[in-house]
Design a binder for these strands. Structure first.
Lengths: 364, 364
DNA sequence: CCTACATTCGTAAACGTTTACGGAATGCGT
DNA sequence: ACGCATTCCGTAAACGTTTACGAATGTAGG
């Protein structure tokens, strides 16, 4: 005898009552409920999820789909784990569990998603790495599976998403650099179909034009968003006939390779070339020079994302009003040393903003 | 009408036959099978996992439990995604799916594991971040849940695990540094209960003693394995009355902070202080100076881990013989610039090993 | 004492599969 | 024409839950 039957037999009551007691249903005597809970604890009973899901038609599990492609492995360092914490803090309130679904690199993300959803392993989905045109979105919409996307996308119908404010970052970075006297500003972008690159470059272009600076396509460096990409980017910058005085990185990780390549040619980042990075990471402030970059709270992003998802699920809509919102997530500039100089100014006169560290442990 | 019934009705055959056709059972006519498969494709039918699991008593899902603690978020950048690829390549052959189970930071890992296992969401488990004494291991053993551990642990009974060769790395690093003329070698270690620190230090101590160098506890720096920990470690090294000429890092990420702190005091890593890191990452070779570190193929590690797990599962033992093995995973030294000098030698005479990069895209 | 209602619990049906079992149809050898 | 093996398929039970329904009991009001 297994499962709930064992418990019922042990207590000499019916399985229906046991189930009701465990699930907090009202029509069960207080004393009975106490006995059931005690026995469940004693026998270590936990309801079999398959039986429960089958009966209820829901699994109480939310899936976070991530891609385990080589590129993601290199780039997205802990981005997802950071977001996961925020998501879980929301889901925990409703006894929802979060699982991460890593799409194998040799499988089509769309097929993988279909498989997971059709098997009813999860009730709802959070998808990431959305492409400009992403078949997963139409599929989920049509299949009426609740979902939110981390990253906007072009789609016929509207759908809930949160995306980082690439446009704001690019514009802010350009404005800042122009204020520091820069006129020739390079920018990096991925060559992939991910949506972010397009918006990033567009915003950069518009910001330049607001200041009557002509857009120069040769200043847009298309490389992978990795350390090696940064190395390559620096290499290309150094080859330009008219060298830029500043560069905006779409991913801060690139700074490591960029710094190296620059130094190999005797060009000092933060003195000879200003650098601003997108997204922060602990390493940014420990680089030499420390990297000016845009901060983001992954935890808060996760919380918002979780709430947005629950708002699309009928069972939870009462708690989270406001279906189908879209959020462009703002980022905050963390000034570092990598752009702390004015073009043409005498460096001696300029006091760069410095970070200071005590000897004691500092909690970040 | 839903599910397999719909399919059966559509084809006007019984659900039993449909099920057998889909599952490749022998007693079904070839033509019938063809029709069923075609109809399933047409109607987009995929078996409901809850029903299937309930009947079969297995889920065909393997769980990889990871901790989403702050420390893990900072440190374990993509370690798991890397391993995941290898795992999936093994599991895919048996139609097993891998899901990642991130334990919330505010929940006891043991309780979380119990919950997931009891709910029968997964058939087997891969656990990581094992502590020196880890209750999860006894629990899984007693509950007879197939599992493997990424990281060894003290346990009454033996269990299958793979662990990185901390001892080999520490010994190798010490030998190498001594060969380069170093006598005063510092080492970093975590203060946590994770098993790795203990082995690392012990092996370091024994290697020193083999060369008749006294073990100096003040050279063991206990900090967090993050960039900031590296910064702190450098700070402490600089305060020592008799400064070491080399340092071994238990995690290469620390090099970034270490480099920074050293440079702030005018100490050049790779010239004034030798540095060797544990575990590689793309960034290691792009640091200035590039970091000597120990390489590991996460993919291969995942493959081995996956096979080891299947070997413990009755249904798959025929394919993967050799139950209950333990593997100490070897690492290979990737020489960089950070320790490429001999103590006391004239630097001009010494040609450091350099990495070269072409202008073209180099695939790592 | 009868009725109405609330409380508590047992019964049994569903949820969507898989699979043991047996029956029908067919082929084959005699 | 018969027996027997083989091939194919339908029937129904089972997996472990939840839950609609109704029965049993107690309680209060008339």
């Amino acid at each position: 005898m297994k499962g709930i039957r064992r418990l019922a037999e042990y207590l000499d009551i019916s399985i229906g009552t046991v189930s009701r007691a465990l699930n907090g249903k009202p029509d069960v005597n207080g004393e009975t409920r106490r006995r059931v809970l005690a026995a469940a604890e004693e026998l270590g009973y936990v309801a079999n999820q398959s039986g429960r899901s089958l009966r209820q038609g829901e699994t109480k599990v939310i899936g976070l789909m991530i891609e385990s492609s080589k590129e993601t492995v290199e780039n997205a360092d802990n981005f997802f784990l950071g977001v996961t914490s925020g998501l879980q803090s929301v889901f925990a309130r409703h006894n929802l569990d979060l699982i991460m679904l890593p799409c194998p690199s040799d499988e089509d993300p769309h097929e993988y998603l279909k498989r997971m959803v059709a098997r009813r392993i999860v009730d709802a989905m959070i998808i990431s790495d959305t492409q400009r045109i992403d078949r997963r979105i139409d599929f989920l919409s049509r299949a009426k599976i609740p979902f939110v996307a981390l990253g906007r996308s072009l789609s016929a119908s509207s759908f809930p998403w949160i995306d980082l404010d690439f446009e704001g970052v690019a514009a802010h970075a350009v404005e800042r650099l122009i204020a520091l006297g820069h006129r020739r500003i390079a920018i990096t972008a991925p060559s992939s179909e991910a949506n972010l690159g397009y918006l990033f470059i567009e915003s950069y272009r518009r910001a330049l034009e607001r200041h009557n600076i002509a857009f120069d396509p040769s200043l847009v460096i298309r490389v992978r968003s990795s350390e090696h990409g940064g190395y390559q980017a620096a290499h290309e910058l150094l080859l330009l006939e008219e060298r830029p005085t500043a560069v905006i990185l779409i991913y801060e990780l690139m700074a490591i390779g960029l710094y190296r390549r620059l130094m190999e040619s005797g060009v000092m980042p933060g003195r000879d070339l200003a650098v601003i990075g997108f997204r922060d990471a602990p390493r940014a402030r420990f680089l030499q020079p420390s990297l000016s970059c845009f901060r983001i709270s992954l935890y808060d992003l996760g919380v918002e994302l979780g709430q947005m998802l629950l708002a699309t699920m009928p069972a939870y809509q009462e708690f989270y009003p406001g279906d189908g919102r879209n959020i462009v997530w703002p980022l905050e500039l963390m000034p570092g040393e990598s752009d702390a100089f004015e073009v043409g100014a005498d460096e001696k006169e300029f006091e760069p903003e410095r970070l200071s560290f005590g000897d004691r442990t500092v909690e970040f």
